[in-house]
Amino acid sequence: MSTIIKFFVAPDHAAAAAVVDVGPDDFFESLTFGNFDAEGALIEWESIFTGQTFEDLVAADVPKVVADPGEGEGPVVLAASRALQDALTVADEQRLVEVSRVWVAERSADGEVFDEGIALWILSGLADLLCAIGRKPQSLYCWSA
């Protein structure tokens, strides 16, 4: 089964949730990826960047589900936490490389094969997307279907 993942920036949860049925492409700048667990990745990335445990982040409801009309059976929109957004915004290339390596190692420990170059490409793309919005009041969201 193939999964389409689109990370995008939107001004608020309501605007992000409004695209759950159609995806963000026609409304917001987005980056498209595929075939990984986006919700798990958001948690793992934040854990690696901040040092919080995976379990603590899940208990804190990270990432926040903004829209899930199919209750897990269709497209969903998730909101990345402010801590993850801030970490991606200030991360330099070396930090992104470090986080990519740790994430790939964690995926490998769970039996999933993930290329370090692709992991770095994803995280660098997200960092670039966040840096491009600058001080605009927008946040990072993830749409997947």
Rank of each mutant, 00 (worst) to 15 (best):
I4Y: 10
I4A: 12
F7E: 00
F8R: 01
V9M: 07
V9A: 03
P11H: 05
P11Y: 05
D12P: 03
A14E: 15
A14G: 06
A15N: 11
A16G: 05
A16N: 06
A18Y: 10
A18N: 11
V19L: 01
V19N: 07
V20H: 01
V20G: 06
V20P: 04
D21T: 06
G23C: 02
G23I: 05
P24Q: 00
P24G: 00
P24T: 02
D26M: 09
D26V: 08
D26C: 08
F27K: 13
F28W: 05
E29K: 10
E29M: 08
E29V: 11
E29C: 05
S30Q: 12
S30G: 07
L31Y: 01
L31G: 03
F33K: 10
G34D: 09
G40P: 01
A41D: 11
A41S: 12
L42G: 04
I43D: 06
I43N: 06
I43P: 02
W45P: 00
W45K: 03
W45Y: 04
E46W: 03
E46D: 02
I48S: 01
F49C: 01
G51A: 07
T53D: 09
T53I: 05
F54T: 08
D56P: 01
A60D: 15
V62F: 03
K64F: 07
K64R: 12
A67S: 15
P69E: 04
E71L: 12
E73A: 15
E73L: 15
G74T: 05
P75L: 09
P75E: 13
V76W: 03
V76I: 15
V77W: 12
V77K: 03
V77R: 08
V77E: 06
L78F: 13
A79E: 10
A80F: 11
A80L: 14
S81I: 10
S81H: 03
D86L: 14
L88Q: 02
L88F: 02
T89E: 11
V90M: 12
A91G: 04
D92C: 10
R95V: 13
L96N: 06
V97H: 07
V97L: 11
E98P: 07
S100A: 15
R101I: 10
R101K: 11
R101D: 14
R101N: 15
V102N: 10
W103L: 14
V104S: 14
A105Q: 15
A105I: 09
A105L: 13
R107F: 09
S108T: 14
S108R: 15
S108N: 12
S108H: 14
A109N: 14
D110T: 12
V113Y: 14
I118V: 11
L120E: 13
W121F: 04
I122E: 05
L123S: 00
L123H: 05
S124P: 04
D128K: 11
C131H: 01
C131V: 10
C131G: 13
A132R: 09
P137W: 04
P137M: 12
Q138R: 12
S139Q: 04
A145W: 00
